[in-house]
Amino acid sequence: MALNKEQIAKRIARELKDGYYVNLGIGIPTLVANYIPAGMDVVLQSENGLLGMGPFPFEGEEDPDLINAGKQTITTVPGSVFFDSAMSFGMIRAGKVDLTVLGAMEVSERGDIANWKIPGKMVKGMGGAMDLVASARNIIVAMMHTNPKGESKLLPACSLPLTGVGCVKKIVSDLAVLDITPHGFQLLERAPGVSVEEIKAKTAGKLMVEGEIPEIVF
């Protein structure tokens, strides 16, 4: 069975470490916040100008001046701090943020990522993604392994306009966990009940499979 969005987020949460400052992108990455292990000290950065992002507010306590980068109403936590957008991207550019998790339309076997534009069809813009991928020390991509037509989104080279070059370190898809290595995608784990053959068939880029590949256990 392929992982659902919550399970992808849950698996990514295992990559968190105590003391990490983490930027979570819009969509599946946002869900990672729900699976931070109890007792682990992780500070969430929201690039619109907040360190220490808390959960959604209780109904009736929404504050229009307090939102995250996805424009959702949120809360602060003890120790939170606000700053302007230049300082926000300053701390990102200076490598102070330990981990960035974001979504992707395509990732190449060299770690290139495309997630901001489909020429002639969809133009939403890159937001902060280009700044994040150009500077983050560790980038994990949360994505579906294939598009709705069943075509691979893990490619030899991206076909869509790039967001960043050679920057993705790890992918957690609905089918597998993979590292990006100098030799291409390296299969680390597979979703429960998903065979190595299926992952091979749905990975268009170069895929390295070494030894037994364990299933992800929840």
Binding site: E47, D84, S85, A86, S88, F89, I92, R93, W116, K117, G120, V123, G125, M126, G127, G128, A129, M130, D131
Partner: peptide, 20 residues
Amino acid sequence: LLSGELEVELIPQGTLATRC
């Protein structure tokens, strides 16, 4: 934008902030 009525320059958010 897609019809060409509006000229648009999309730039990275940190670049936008830093150019200010």
